[in-house]
Nucleic acid binder design. Structure first.
Lengths: 229, 229
DNA sequence: TCGAGTCGGATTGCATACAACTCTCCCGTG
DNA sequence: CACGGGAGAGTTGTATGCAATCCGACTCGA
């Protein structure tokens, strides 16, 4: 692995961690000094980050961490609603018993963590969920689809996304996983695709909901409407 | 525009022209000498081409022009069938009269060229067709969707693709354009999406058909079946 | 006081030199 | 004769220095 590769991962991690906040500039010389490298590999890493959409290059002025707007989030979900169902549509006739067992294991571990419900558990669920989706993408066996999703999903949102789920929504998400596994084990791509579509739309709804207080999260508007009825 | 940008376009053009054939290596020093530039901007251009999927980087060994397999073509069509309908689905409620007029003009010019049917006209149709699709993508007003399609479609195939169309198929393609314009002018996104889906699937069928002799192209298998029946 | 021009600092863009790595070919050995 | 090891050439990876460009502040003039 070259130095440029390492720098790429380091900067990416720092963006995700919020160490490089949105809108801030990433200076070649600064990072170079810090990592005891010349500007060359840093330049190369920044170029890759630009083409992956993590930072934007302002000519002769620097590389700035991109700021995500509400519209960006909507665009991404719109594409995920198309692409992620296609992942499982392809995966259904291709997936093997071994991978299904892995998915089953991941689902089980997520459910166990879901029962606890504390913040640390939710973080861990997010990680397992990423692995779950990665397994599905691998089963789909389409390098281009994989690459598209990698460049699109860009966990800056989904990193903390599970924290926006209500307990019911989190539970529903676990149900989706189970149903996906059932559909895939039967080789029913359209069933799996439908579940995945619902899965993504649910995530979208949680994400686009105005940042709710805990109060609102436990007693969302639609439920209040139900109670009044 | 920087030197690296120019090099990027030059190399890309040469790959499309077949000047750099698939599987051949693009040497940094060679191009540098030829363009009287140092390796630095060439390196940068090659990295962009790698991330755009035109060449693949073999660590410490060079950048090789990617070779397209049948499977690659199928993968691309599978994604286009998803993404291009989404383009017009979005475009329908957003497109303005001016752009519709442009599309109409392009369709008309393509039809006129279609009547002639010689090789040069087919080449020109291909260019106009690219502009037609570019207008649609612009109307969709989704930078991410635009970028995805740009990295996916990569005219290495579709460059000569129209030459694989039979006269009937070419005519059908023109019909699709007209129907798209009608649907878009009525703001009917689902209609437009359906037409586009058919449009892409037709292109796929023509593309995946085993390379036909002129004989085969004029008298394809399905037509022979019709005659026997 | 406001505006235009200019100068300075900071940053990226590019050129050049050197280091590290990989592959190949050849030679020696079993 | 087959196989392993090592040297060499060629290519990419990295460091460094200089040039070009951009932004902001300051000064000068109206």
């Amino acid at each position: 692995m070259t130095a440029a590769d390492r720098v790429y991962q380091i900067i990416k991690k720092r963006i995700l961690d919020g160490q490089y906040p949105a809108g801030s500039y990433v200076r070649e010389a600064t990072i170079g000094q810090e990592l005891a490298l010349s500007r060359t590999p840093i330049r190369e890493a920044l170029r890759r980050l630009v083409s992956d959409g993590w930072v934007e290059a302002i000519p002769h002025h620097g590389a700035r961490v991109v700021a995500w707007t509400q519209r960006d989030v909507e665009e991404v979900f719109e594409l995920r609603v198309l692409l992620e169902p296609q992942v499982v549509r392809r995966a259904a006739p291709r997936i093997g018993a071994e991978r299904l067992a892995t998915l089953d294991d991941l689902a089980e571990r997520m459910e166990a963590l879901c029962e606890r419900g504390d913040d640390a558990s939710v973080d861990e669920i997010a990680q397992l969920n990423n692995r779950f989706h990665a397994e599905l993408v691998a089963a789909a066996d389409s390098p281009r689809l994989q690459r598209l999703l990698e460049t699109i999903v860009q966990i800056p949102v989904s990193r903390r996304s599970f924290h926006r789920y209500t307990r019911d929504e989190l539970h529903g998400s676990m149900q989706h996983h189970r149903e996906l596994i059932r559909a895939l084990s039967l080789g029913d791509g359209e069933w799996a695709a439908s579940v995945m579509r619902a899965h993504i739309l649910a995530a979208r709804a949680a994400q686009l909901r105005p940042a709710a207080s805990d109060e609102e999260a436990r007693e969302p508007a639609f439920r209040r409407r139900l109670h009044r009825a």
